[in-house]
């Protein structure tokens, strides 16, 4: 098996474990069934990836950016459209859906905290399943176009590369129509770590 295929295999395993853990944590947080589906684990050209997001209209979202630092640095992004962030706030606060009517500091921090908790769950997968020491940094929250959020997310990696390895997941929360997206992007030395993980499989 080529190195590239091995890394892809490792990435898919990490993605699956991360998503399983994230689903458990998410369901616990919102006291509702939640399913996270793996949409993409692939190498994608930066132009192609951003063209797709830009072409999908000017959706307004709230995104939480977190850097997972440690032995295998990753960048994490969780985003949801503004209207759904209000529903998410009600779910987290265990209120009747519809009570949060404006995008306020609580709605913004609902996304912040979702990002924080999900990225921490993923870093926990690295440490417990692969003995790779990782920790999340405090989240940065941005309220902007989905395309701006995504391009800024990949910016630091895309400066040096034309292709990025990316894991994309889609959330579906039972009893609501909330759609959220989560991305994990290995940075720098991570690919060596992924090769190491692949070699142990």
């Amino acid at each position: 098996m080529t190195d590239r295929l091995k890394v892809d295999k490792a990435l898919k395993l990490i993605a699956k474990l991360s998503i399983d853990k994230s689903s458990q944590v998410l369901s616990k947080m919102i006291k509702s069934g939640a399913r996270i589906d793996l949409e993409n684990v692939c190498v994608v050209d930066i132009t192609e990836a951003t063209e797709k997001v830009i072409g999908q209209s000017d959706q307004e979202v709230v995104g939480a950016f977190i850097d997972l630092v440690g032995d295998a640095p990753f960048k994490f992004l969780f985003y949801v459209n503004v209207a759904d962030s209000l529903v998410l706030t009600d779910l987290i606060l265990k209120r009747e859906i519809g009570m949060t009517k404006i995008f306020d500091v609580y709605a913004q921090s609902a996304v912040q905290e979702m990002g924080n908790i999900l990225s921490s769950a993923i870093s926990n997968v690295f440490s417990s399943d692969f003995q790779i020491s990782m920790a999340p940094t405090p989240p940065t929250v941005i309220n902007d176009y989905a395309s701006t959020v995504f391009t800024e997310y990949i910016m630091s990696v895309a400066v040096d590369k034309n292709e990025i390895l990316i894991i994309e997941s889609v959330f579906n929360i039972v009893a609501t129509n909330i759609g959220c997206r989560m991305f994990i992007l290995p940075v720098g030395e991570s690919e060596k770590i992924l090769s190491y993980v692949a070699s142990t499989m």
């Binding site: 609580y106 913004q108 912040q112 905290e113």
Partner: peptide, 9 residues
């Protein structure tokens, strides 16, 4: 906590 929603909870 740096998240207002957690402080509220």
């Amino acid at each position: 906590d740096d998240a207002p929603i957690i402080r509220l909870m």
